[in-house]
Nucleic acid binder design. Structure first.
Length: 323
DNA sequence: AGAATAACCTGTCTGC
DNA sequence: TGCAGACAGGTTATTC
């Protein structure tokens, strides 16, 4: 559900509230939120070590790359949870609380006495410059994830600036993600050349978080429409300038979405205060199957590509624009 | 290498 | 009213 603009809206809300705050208590209500897609069975001791690792720790900042979010930690007595192998102690500033919203995750700021939403999976009592309250992780489908993770150097891949030694530190689960279009070192021409080496559909390339992170199903469709490129067009067959246009469109459409708080179809995507974003009304193709194209009035078509719903105007997005 | 599929979950909506 | 089936903004593993 949440893509880069939605995650960034959440990050900003969390940053304003949590920077410099201390976690006084951590409670996991559903252990599955600590698991991963492939490892759902979370032993009880991992829940305990996760909770203990966070108690008394200070949140230094709230960071994001693509859809991955994490909070670097500082404080005495932090111990890694079993993600990193258990009881070893480590330098405090090597750790972060990682958070991925998945399809239905929400990070919400509440007062302790507020009623608990039924899908609340974890609760963190916090006290800091902005006051005392609770950070609650609510996630209907439990595709989201929480973890205490090491900070490690991010990808050295396309678009990264500087040498390997200067790579930005990211939470371990985000270490495979490419730079997102809003990061300083992101380079459209460099990423476009990486796309051109891939013999895959343009939409598939956009959704591959290892190359460029942050683009999800909605903004992929929107960017391809804006650039006039068919989602199934092979990246390797397109002119570099066309690929660059898609990447610029992705950055532009996500920037515009961010300005209005992201895209919400329902109460599943909300910011830290439970408020919806307004970009749904600006969508040109996503979710508009059968409705007239905003440019040429041809009905929008829905096809399945890479297992994902894909919306296209077959007149504005011709498949054959080859090198 | 890349494509397709399933899996992880819960909920909503549609059609019969 | 009930029920089956499709579908949902993401990620990962497996199989062909």
């Amino acid at each position: 559900m949440p893509e880069l603009p939605e995650v960034e809206s959440v990050r900003r809300g969390l940053s304003a509230w949590l920077t410099g705050a201390t976690i006084t208590r951590a409670q996991v209500l559903d252990a599955r939120i600590l698991g991963t897609t492939s490892a759902r069975n979370v032993p009880a001791e991992r829940v305990v070590s996760f909770e203990r690792a966070l108690e008394g720790v200070r949140i230094v900042s709230v960071e994001r790359r693509g859809k991955y979010m994490w909070m670097p930690l500082a404080g005495d007595g932090l111990r890694g949870d079993s993600v990193a192998g258990g009881s070893e102690t480590a330098e405090v500033d090597e750790w972060a609380l990682a958070m991925h919203l998945g399809m239905s995750g929400q990070a919400r700021i509440h007062e302790a006495e507020d009623q608990l939403h039924p899908h609340t999976r974890a609760v963190f009592d916090v006290a800091g410059p902005a006051g005392v309250g609770q950070l609650r992780f609510v996630d209907q489908r439990i595709f989201g994830h929480l973890g205490v993770e090491r900070l490690v150097p991010g990808v050295a891949g396309v678009g990264a600036t500087g040498t390997a030694g200067e790579r930005r530190l990211v939470a371990e689960s985000a270490s495979g993600a490419g730079l997102d279009p809003f990061e300083g070192g992101f380079s459209v021409p460099v990423v476009a050349r990486a796309f051109a080496r891939k013999n895959v559909a343009m939409k598939t390339a956009l959704l591959d978080q290892r190359v460029v992170s942050g683009v999800g199903n909605i903004y992929a469709d929107e960017a391809l429409f804006e650039a006039g490129v068919h989602p199934a067009a092979r990246a390797s067959r397109l002119r570099i300038s066309r690929i660059e246009r898609v990447l610029e469109a992705a950055r532009d459409v996500m920037a515009r979405a961010l300005e209005v708080g992201g895209t919400s179809f329902d109460a599943l995507y909300v910011n830290v205060n439970g408020e919806s974003g307004y970009f749904e009304r600006s969508l040109q193709v996503y979710g508009r199957e059968g409705q007239p194209c905003v440019r040429c009035s041809t009905p929008i078509t829905r096809v399945v590509l890479g297992g994902r719903s894909t919306h296209v105007c077959v007149r504005c997005q011709k498949p054959q624009r080859l090198r």
